[in-house]
Design a protein around this nucleic acid. Structure first.
Lengths: 119, 119
DNA sequence: TGGCCTATTTATAATAC
DNA sequence: TGTATTATAAATAGGCC
C-alpha cells in the first residue's frame, strides 16, 4: 500500500512474496491483538505458510504427531488470544482430513444455525 | 485510527465497542484475504464475539452439538481460506476444553518443534 | 536476509443523516 | 441501527544498505 498500489494476485517472485508475507503477517497480528483488546473478545488466526519456517524439521514427524501438533497450535492459539500462528510444513489437506474424521455425523441443523449466526 | 488516536484498551461503551468490532473485523477479513491471495497460502481467523450475532439461538444447542459446531466452523474456515468466522455464543472456555480433551498425551518434542517453527 | 526509510495507499474514529 | 463522509492515524511497497 505504499510506494505503489499492487495487484491483488499471487506474488510469483519468491523473495518478494516472502517479504510481503513477513510484513503483512506482522500487521495482521497487530490487528488481531487490537481487536481482541478493544472489544474484549477472544480469537486467533491460523496461517499455513509452507514457504517459511523449519519445514524440513517438522516433516520428520509421523503423521499422528502432526495431528497432535495441530491440536497443540489451536490450543496455544486459544490461550494466546489473537496471536498469529504459522503452521509451517503442515498441509492443510491433513488438517482438513483431521477435522473431517470428527465430522462424520454432522447435524444439518447445527450447520444451518452456524451459518445463520454469522455477522 | 483516524479523527483521533484511541487508547488500546477495552471500550466500555457498548455501542461504541460494537461499532468498532464491526468496522475492524471487516478490515481484518480483508487483510486475511489479501495475505492468503498475495502469498498463495491458506489460513483462517476465528473470533469469539458473544456480544454480536444470534446468541440466544445457538445457546439452545446441547453441549455436544456445540462441539460439533466448532469442528464445523473450523472445517468451513479451512475450506473458505481466510474468511473470518464468528463463533457467536460459544464460550472459548468450551473450545478450550474440547481441545484439551484431545491433548492428554501431548508430546513435548512436538511442542518444542512447533514453537521453533514460528516465523 | 534483515532492518530502515518514506511516499502513498488503506483503514478507520468521529460525525452527520 | 445502518450508511456515508472525511480528516487522520496506520500499514506498507519499493528502495537502500
Amino acid at each position: 500500500m505504499s510506494r505503489k498500489k499492487i495487484k491483488l494476485a499471487y506474488i510469483t517472485n519468491d523473495s518478494a512474496r516472502k517479504t510481503t508475507y513477513k510484513k503483512r503477517s506482522k500487521g495482521l497480528v497487530k490487528k488481531v491483538r487490537e481487536l481482541t483488546t478493544l472489544c474484549g473478545i477472544e480469537g486467533f488466526t491460523v496461517m499455513n505458510s509452507p514457504d517459511f519456517g523449519s519445514q524440513v524439521e517438522l516433516r520428520k514427524l509421523r503423521k499422528e504427531n502432526r495431528q497432535k501438533e495441530l491440536k497443540e497450535v489451536i490450543f496455544e492459539s486459544l490461550s494466546g488470544k489473537g496471536i498469529l500462528q504459522s503452521l509451517n510444513a503442515m498441509d492443510l489437506d491433513e488438517v482438513d482430513l483431521l477435522v473431517k474424521q470428527n465430522l462424520t455425523d454432522i447435524d444439518n441443523r447445527v450447520r444451518v444455525l452456524t451459518k445463520a449466526s454469522r455477522s
